[in-house]
Amino acid sequence: MPEILHRARAALTTAEVDRQVRRLYYLAYRVEPIGQMLANPQANAATVAYAMARIPRALSAARRLLALPGVAGHEETAYARSLLNAAEQQLNAPTTRLLIIANAAREAAAQADAADDDVRVVVFRDIEERCRYLVDAARVEPVLARRGWSGHDRAASDRLQQWAARWGLGADDDGPAQEAGAVHPEVDAELVRQAAERAATRARCAAGIRCTETGCLTYGAIKVTLPGAWLCASCIAVVNARLAARGYAPDTVRPLEGGIPDDARYIVTLYNASGRGACTIECDTPQRAQFIAETERPFNNTGYEIEVPAPPRN
């Protein structure tokens, strides 16, 4: 009888250890893909915050499980440990710090854009782009012959973090570094050129939407009955003459009846002129819509259209 009881207790103990190891495995399998979120160069602030909150809690729970009798020494625990270690390493990797800086730079650029601070917009976007490039370069993919960072990349990461810190974009910062109008650090000549170009575009767009007739550089065009078209007064006559020669009525193209309401929203569609992809941005004014159309470049060959949605019918 004692031997039977001993075997029963041993079976119960083994079953309990197996149950705890399964819990450890479940935890490891859940946390490993969360760690991979921090390897994505396009991870946004919400994703990074989620991963940085979940991984430490999972690691804490794993340590409690590993402290239970028999779990740490179980033959199948080593693989679960490897998944947990991978998530912990990704959490503490320098690329995670770069992602935090990149998202802080994105927020800072948006605020600088709202304040028409072109220098800061250009600088913060440059910092974000460089951070995300280095995060992408750090990925190890043997099939694609990607071996992670080189010594040059590590040095570039250190310099970039120092540069971001000079603008107040440390990894622990929650918002933009400096207020608009404040004195900023010295800026590279190329970034100064880009900021000046952006400011010139802003001044050019102050007149309104650019005429969509090919070759016309007139700003302040009006919406006409031709779908997708914004024309200046001269081009309305030109387009009507062209259409009349093809048999259309001489006044086919005319200004939109009633004009555009003062509270209208302008929808800018940015599309890839040589491939797939498009995104839309909503603006309050025609000046802002044209400025967005000329400065935002989500694709290598970005084209744009500006539309005003028709008011809903009652």
Score class of each variant (00 low, 15 high):
residue 307 E to K: 05
residue 138 A to H: 01
residue 292 I to G: 01
residue 98 L to R: 06
residue 177 A to Q: 10
residue 28 A to Q: 03
residue 70 G to D: 10
residue 258 G to T: 09
residue 254 R to M: 07
residue 251 D to E: 10
residue 8 A to L: 15
residue 279 C to M: 14
residue 116 D to E: 14
residue 216 C to F: 03
residue 284 D to A: 15
residue 110 A to P: 00
residue 291 F to N: 00
residue 17 V to A: 06
residue 33 P to W: 08
residue 80 A to G: 05
residue 267 I to K: 04
residue 102 A to M: 00
residue 223 K to V: 04
residue 287 Q to M: 07
residue 29 Y to F: 10
residue 254 R to N: 06
residue 310 A to I: 11
residue 210 R to N: 02
residue 284 D to Y: 03
residue 76 E to H: 14
residue 273 A to H: 07
residue 231 L to F: 05
residue 254 R to F: 04
residue 299 F to G: 01
residue 277 G to F: 05
residue 240 N to S: 09
residue 42 Q to D: 15
residue 70 G to S: 11
residue 94 P to W: 02
residue 158 D to W: 06
residue 94 P to S: 07
residue 140 V to K: 10
residue 112 A to Y: 04
residue 198 R to E: 09
residue 200 A to F: 04
residue 125 R to N: 14
residue 52 M to W: 02
residue 246 R to N: 09
residue 57 R to Y: 08
residue 115 A to D: 10
residue 114 A to R: 13
residue 287 Q to H: 05
residue 190 E to K: 13
residue 210 R to H: 03
residue 69 P to I: 08
residue 32 E to Q: 13
residue 289 A to Q: 03
residue 307 E to G: 07
residue 238 V to T: 11
residue 261 P to F: 07
residue 231 L to M: 03
residue 237 A to N: 11
residue 290 Q to A: 06
residue 53 A to G: 08
residue 216 C to S: 04
residue 120 R to Q: 14
residue 150 S to L: 09
residue 90 Q to K: 13
residue 209 I to W: 00
residue 232 C to I: 04
residue 80 A to M: 03
residue 216 C to W: 02
residue 76 E to V: 07
residue 287 Q to L: 01
residue 103 N to Q: 10
residue 254 R to Q: 14
residue 71 V to C: 03
residue 228 G to T: 06
residue 240 N to K: 04
residue 259 G to Y: 09
residue 21 V to W: 00
residue 189 A to M: 10
residue 154 R to W: 10
residue 243 L to E: 06
residue 139 R to K: 14
residue 92 N to P: 00
residue 111 Q to A: 10
residue 276 R to Q: 15
residue 75 E to H: 13
residue 294 E to F: 07
residue 88 E to Q: 15
residue 53 A to L: 11
residue 261 P to R: 14
residue 140 V to D: 05
residue 19 R to N: 14
residue 238 V to Q: 07
residue 9 R to H: 11
residue 14 T to Y: 11
residue 12 L to N: 11
residue 40 N to V: 13
residue 33 P to T: 11
residue 67 A to H: 05
residue 280 T to A: 14
residue 60 S to W: 10
residue 259 G to A: 08
residue 106 R to L: 11
residue 256 L to H: 13
residue 230 W to M: 02
residue 4 I to A: 15
residue 115 A to W: 01
residue 306 I to K: 00
residue 111 Q to C: 04
residue 59 L to E: 09
residue 149 W to D: 06
residue 13 T to M: 10
residue 30 R to W: 12
residue 74 H to A: 05
residue 105 A to H: 03
residue 209 I to F: 01
residue 51 A to F: 05
residue 219 Y to F: 15
residue 178 Q to P: 07
residue 56 P to V: 02
residue 13 T to C: 10
residue 217 L to Q: 15
residue 37 M to F: 02
residue 278 A to Y: 07
residue 173 D to Y: 07
residue 65 L to Y: 09
residue 278 A to V: 05
residue 255 P to V: 10
residue 302 T to A: 07
residue 139 R to W: 12
residue 46 A to V: 12
residue 83 L to E: 00
residue 97 R to E: 12
residue 64 R to F: 07
residue 290 Q to L: 02
residue 277 G to Y: 04
residue 48 V to R: 05
residue 299 F to L: 05
residue 287 Q to N: 09
residue 37 M to S: 04
residue 112 A to C: 10
residue 15 A to E: 14
residue 10 A to H: 08
residue 113 D to V: 01
residue 90 Q to W: 04
residue 108 A to C: 08
